[in-house]
């Protein structure tokens, strides 16, 4: 499947490959420094009990980010 969706719309357990990243410079740079770039495979592990932020797995480690930050990341 190659449906494009925002990372924030992915269900827990779903995974995708990053195709595009946009948005605020600082958050974006931080994510890229940590290895979230075009081509990286990410899996949404779970949402926080209050629905936000979300936890994702990439390159063998766990990362949290808010929905507002995940909205700027398109995966397929």
């Amino acid at each position: 499947m190659s449906v494009r969706r925002a990372l924030s719309d992915l269900e827990a357990g779903a995974r995708g490959r990053v195709v595009e990243m946009s948005g605020d410079g600082e958050a974006l740079k931080r994510l890229m420094d940590m290895g979230l770039i075009r081509g990286t495979t990410v899996e949404v592990v779970r949402r926080a009990p209050l629905g936000d932020p979300i936890e994702v797995r990439l390159r063998g480690f766990m990362l949290t980010l808010r929905r507002t930050e995940a909205e700027h990341i398109t995966v397929e």
């Binding site: 600082e26 932020p53 930050e69």
Partner: peptide
């Protein structure tokens, strides 16, 4: 100030 990102590793 701008809301700071919640980009954080769960070690």
């Amino acid at each position: 100030g701008q809301a700071r990102p919640m980009i954080m590793e769960l070690p």
